[in-house]
Design a protein around this nucleic acid. Structure first.
Lengths: 123, 123
DNA sequence: ATTTTCGTACTAATTAATTAGTATGCGGCG
DNA sequence: CGCCGCATACTAATTAATTAGTACGAAAAT
């Protein structure tokens, strides 16, 4: 059988982005934010957020009438996991070929590269 | 409804990697190659390769008794599309934050970075 | 010539992902 | 009090992704 993906799916990520930028939020908040871009049912958002809670991406806490949701893991961590998963799946774990694609197709200037190299040298 | 993903799924990619490295292959070839790593049915591989043909990732040509499959698009192109899709989905289209993750977590040496910068400067 | 082998076509079954509906509870207000 | 608004829980439905089975034809082997 197909195994459940360990990283965030497309819709899950869309919701997590909203939660991360607010840090603290409700189903309604997220629902309204999503509505600005596309049609979606309130209950759909709730279901997704429940799944995200099961998957340990969100924590909820009952406050007054509605649950308040917060990220359960820092954004950098989660995104880092996604990057690692992508590098593993697509490039068998080696980051260099991905770098090559990036510099060749995503208009990264040499200056930006130098900048990155400098940061790297310091760490 | 959920829209069909435009890029390769996990299993599709696994098969395409095998096809790319052989350039020309059959269902049986791929099947046996996959078997070295995990249990899978011959017909499953065939179904996947048919889907890949529908999605225009593979071309097939009847030779003698079995179909011979070839990539319909160059590997660099397809992988490039996957990278772009990832950058769009995860980083809203900007490559720099991805670069930062790469240098921080995938042990890229400064030397490798210089190397990339050099390649970039030439293009 | 009959059986075995190997290939495809077609179809089915399962699971995750996604979207949404129905039932129900609670607090506030006319 | 009884209804309205809003929240959740539970369940259902749909689609893509994935895995695999059955039927069947043609070539090869005996």
């Amino acid at each position: 059988m197909r195994r459940r993906s360990t990283t965030l799916t497309e819709q899950e990520l869309e919701i997590m982005k909203i939660v991360w930028e607010r840090d603290q939020t409700t189903v309604r908040d997220v629902y309204e934010s999503l509505l600005e871009h596309r049609k979606v049912a309130y209950t759909t958002v709730m279901t997704m957020m429940n799944i995200l809670e099961q998957k340990k991406y969100l924590k909820k806490r009952l406050a007054d009438r509605a649950y308040i949701y917060r990220p359960a893991q820092p954004k950098g961590q989660v995104i880092g996991d996604m990057v690692r998963d992508f590098v593993d799946r697509v490039f068998n774990g080696s980051a260099e070929p991905l770098l090559l694609h990036l510099v060749q197709e995503h208009d990264l200037s040499p200056a930006e590269l130098e900048e990155i190299a400098r940061i790297r040298r310091k760490s």
